[in-house]
């Protein structure tokens, strides 16, 4: 078995009286594309927020690369290569597409006040290199001609592509995608899926996708984790899960949710 890059153990998180995540555990192997599926309200997005560090769980641990990161703030986790996208596109609207990419690269010389003021030559050079790199990425995503457009002026589908391109620019090791295909045309779904597979293959990025579109899941994900009512219900390939009665009841077949809890 491949090494796991991420492990969640016994996560519990309640919002008031709602137990959004109730003792959920699973692990993600390095270099895979894993889908996280489940009916609405299963706690998938909450889980993404727990993993990325936006929420701190009431109980349980998040282990990244064998290291317990449960108490680490989200930006430190991101520095370790754990990145995420959001359910709705959250581009920097009044920055150009190119700037959207430039801003996310970590460790730039001009990011400290001292560097910004006194090492201008160095960061100008660095920016030039980053512009070239970003243009390359934008070209792969078919966004090159839009590079000097304000990101807020793009169409919904283009914003989706910018989100993914921006994440690539940040050099992730593990990328959590929260419903990347939501509200996207079939042609673009195809393209996004193609990009994800390519990034996985060429750069070795590990992906976790929250996704409702099972065709996509079947096509690009090697493993599927099913959540329901805040618990991990099952995992395996989609083919295996199709014959799992609990999964069928909870999700694939629809309805009969109360049976899952018992």
């Amino acid at each position: 078995m491949a090494k796991s890059i991420l492990e969640v153990k016994g996560i519990k998180l309640a919002f008031g009286g709602v137990q959004a995540i109730d003792d959920c555990s699973f692990h993600i192997e390095e270099g895979t594309i894993t889908a996280l599926i489940g009916p609405n309200g299963a706690g998938k997005s909450t889980m993404v927020n727990v993993i990325s560090g936006t929420y701190r769980p009431d109980e349980g641990h998040v282990i990244l690369d064998g290291k317990d990161v449960t108490r680490m703030p989200n930006y430190v986790r991101a520095q370790h290569g754990l990145l995420r996208t959001f359910q709705i596109s959250r581009e920097f609207a009044n920055l150009t597409v190119l700037e959207n990419l430039l801003v996310v690269r970590q460790g730039q010389v001009g990011e400290s006040l001292f560097g910004a003021l006194f090492r201008a030559k160095r960061w100008q050079e660095q920016t030039k290199e980053l512009v070239a790199e970003a243009n390359d990425i934008l070209n792969t995503f078919g966004l090159y001609r839009l590079r000097n457009e304000y990101a807020g002026n793009l169409s919904g589908g283009q914003k989706r592509l910018v989100e993914l391109a921006r994440a690539v620019m940040a050099k992730p090791r593990l990328l959590l995608l929260d419903e990347p295909m939501a509200g996207v045309t079939p042609a673009l779904i195809e393209r996004l899926g193609h990009h994800i597979v390519e990034l996985n293959r060429e750069l070795g990025v590990t992906f976790v996708l929250v996704e409702h579109n099972l065709d996509v899941v079947e096509k690009i994900c090697s493993r599927v984790v099913v959540m329901a009512l805040g618990k991990q219900l099952a995992d395996g390939t989609l083919a295996e899960l199709r014959s799992n009665q609990a999964v069928i009841d909870a999700y694939l077949g629809g309805g009969a949710r109360e049976r899952v809890g018992s």
Partner: peptide, 11 residues
């Protein structure tokens, strides 16, 4: 533009 996103990119 969006503070949370900047945080989630490691800044």
């Amino acid at each position: 533009e969006d503070q949370d996103v900047v945080d989630s990119f490691g800044k």
